[in-house]
């Protein structure tokens, strides 16, 4: 599983990264977490609001700092 955190690196992006890392750990998943900070790459995804979360190349959330439990819910689908 590939999880991408889309955002230029502000505190909100860091909070979402922390939620994703905690969720992956609690679910005991084999996942690669990648931070995407290149604005061109972010807009290629169609994301206009950050932070955003993409799982296996699909954007599943944008403009929200998801909690650990919200990320867990998404990853469990």
């Amino acid at each position: 599983m590939k999880i991408e955190i889309l955002g230029v690196g502000c505190p909100k992006c860091k909070m979402l990264t922390a939620s994703a890392e905690a969720a992956v750990k609690e679910l005991n998943l084999q996942a690669e977490i990648v931070k995407v900070t290149d604005i061109d790459k972010i807009t290629e995804y169609g994301v206009m609001m950050t932070p955003a979360l993409a799982v296996n190349g699909m954007v599943v959330s944008a403009g929200k700092v998801l909690s650990k439990d919200e990320v867990k819910k998404i990853l469990s689908k």
Partner: peptide
């Protein structure tokens, strides 16, 4: 201002961005 075409095309990043409004 936002892109209506992106919503019509169901671009996930745009749909999710619009949901945060």
């Amino acid at each position: 201002m936002f892109c209506l075409a992106g919503i019509g095309a169901h671009i996930p990043g745009m749909i999710e961005s619009a949901k945060s409004a």
